[in-house]
Nucleic acid binder design. Structure first.
Length: 414
RNA sequence: CGGAGCGUAGUAUAGUGGUAGUAUACGUGCUUUGGGAGCACGCGGUCCGAGUUCGAUUCUCGGCGCUCCGACCA
């Protein structure tokens, strides 16, 4: 892509209405536009990163047997009354139609949508297990949106729902999802700072597991066991019944029992929990077993916050000049810069022909400004062609200082 | 939802009860070309409403918006 044709305008100054680092950098580099508190629009660069994140997750969810769907964001009041959450879900966006006066919900999650669909599809143990997932915009009327992309009122979420004939089947699937999630965060480039964390289960279940990425910008406090790479959310110690079960004598590692844990701030980027028959019961989602007996379907829920992940990656991967994208999610692999108009044309065409994702800065501006923009935008490999490079290409990794000259043939192998 | 702070060009900031300034961005022209280049000219602004006043961007009240702290966070 030619940068002269890319809709993006970088900004020198930090926006005055953002304190959070992820929002400052993403706005300055032209990835997102702030619409209002907790609501951000994705501009072309931002959308590319979002799509890259989604693709990594999608692949893994399909490997886990998931069928991708797209449920409705607009939902009706009655389903939320069946589940009992019309009154109890505190951040629910509710509103009435101006014409019909009917009440509606903007979906903050989709149990109320997927379960009625499954009631139509699931009748026998032969239909189980079944797995569905989607990427969708969720709406939550947060009392206080904050920390840029980390806690918004509208955000994209991957939600995955599993349906099982038995709790045992749910349990084993739940465990395999833990592994799938770990692989996802590894691929996203934040594996070394993301921890499987025991957490409370809210109103759904006794406990849940979160995937927490270490960052001072996070809103949770977790206790990490360095030998197991496991962690416990501080909230577990604050909940009396959980404390009895998991941490009678203060913070202990949930997997090895070790006591000297490291306390860190973190942001929850993923959450998995067993909801069992919490929804199948009120909605009457049942199946018949081999003996013709009816049982409630057992369910598991598995979420990943996409916007939050975008913000979290920026929080953990940046320097004072800008963003440093992990290659797996970067909007482009190469950022090609020329010092004089047309110098990079040939190499750009070759890279495109060879199938690389490359942003070609063909703008008629000073070289220094291009370098500054390249640092801000954060594409992993910077390629420069100029009179100085004498027919070769200067290569610099975004997270390294050194530059090296290569022939095109070498670059192709990157 | 409680508390604090802040709303001035696209962006970031200064200032004032009487013609609103600077930087950057943008437009035009020339020069320049390895770390946000230079010169000249130009375009563009006081969140909304009410009040006080001869006169309000400034003072008062209300609203709306944004940020931060806290509470909350299925």
């Amino acid at each position: 892509m030619r940068q002269s044709k890319l809709f993006i305008k970088t900004v020198r100054e930090d926006p005055k209405d953002e304190e959070s680092l992820n929002a400052k950098l993403l706005i300055r580099a032209g990835y997102v536009y702030k619409v209002m508190a907790g609501v951000y629009a994705f501009l072309p660069l931002g959308l590319k990163v979002i799509k890259n994140i989604e693709d990594i997750i999608r692949k893994k969810m399909i490997a886990m047997g998931g069928n991708e769907v797209l449920l409705s964001a607009l939902q009706n009041r009655s389903d939320w009354e069946v589940s009992g959450r019309w009154d109890s879900f505190d951040v629910l966006f509710k509103f009435a139609s101006f014409y019909s006066k009917n009440d509606y919900v903007l979906g903050p999650t989709h149990e109320e949508e997927i379960v009625p669909i499954m009631r139509q599809q699931i009748a026998s143990y032969r239909n189980l297990p079944a797995y569905f997932f989607q990427f969708q915009n969720k709406f939550r009327d947060e009392k206080r949106a904050k920390s840029g992309l980390l806690r918004g009122r509208e955000f994209i979420m991957k939600d995955f729902y599993s349906f099982h004939a038995s709790e045992k089947d749910l349990d084993s699937y739940y465990d395999s999802m833990k592994d799938a999630y770990s692989e996802i965060f590894n691929e996203l480039g934040i594996g070394n700072t993301t921890y499987l964390t025991l957490a409370s289960g809210g109103t759904f279940s006794k406990y849940s597991h979160e995937f927490q990425t270490l960052t001072p910008a996070g809103e949770d406090t977790i206790h990490i066991c360095d030998s197991c790479k496991a962690a416990v959310n501080e909230e577990v110690f604050e909940d009396e019944s959980l404390r009895q079960e998991f941490a009678k004598e203060g913070p202990v590692c949930p997997s090895c029992g070790k006591k000297d844990l490291r306390k860190e701030k973190a942001i929850e980027v993923g959450n998995i929990f067993k909801i069992k028959d919490k929804f199948s019961s009120p909605f009457g989602l049942k199946f018949k077993d081999e003996n013709g007996e009816e049982h409630n379907v057992m369910m598991g829920c598995y979420g990943i916050g996409i916007n939050r992940l975008l913000g979290a990656i920026v929080e953990v991967s940046h320097d004072d000049k800008g963003i440093i994208w992990p290659e797996s999610v970067a909007p482009f692999k190469f950022h090609l810069i020329e010092s004089r108009k047309g110098e990079g044309e040939k190499i750009y065409n070759s890279l495109v022909a060879d199938g690389f994702k490359v942003l070609y800065d063909d703008r008629d501006i000073g070289l220094g400004e291009k370098f500054a923009d390249a640092d801000l935008v954060g594409i992993p490999w910077r390629l420069v062609v100029s009179a100085r490079t004498e027919g070769k290409i200067e290569v610099k990794k975004r997270n390294e200082e050194k530059t090296e000259l290569f022939n095109y043939e070498n670059i192709r192998k990157f």
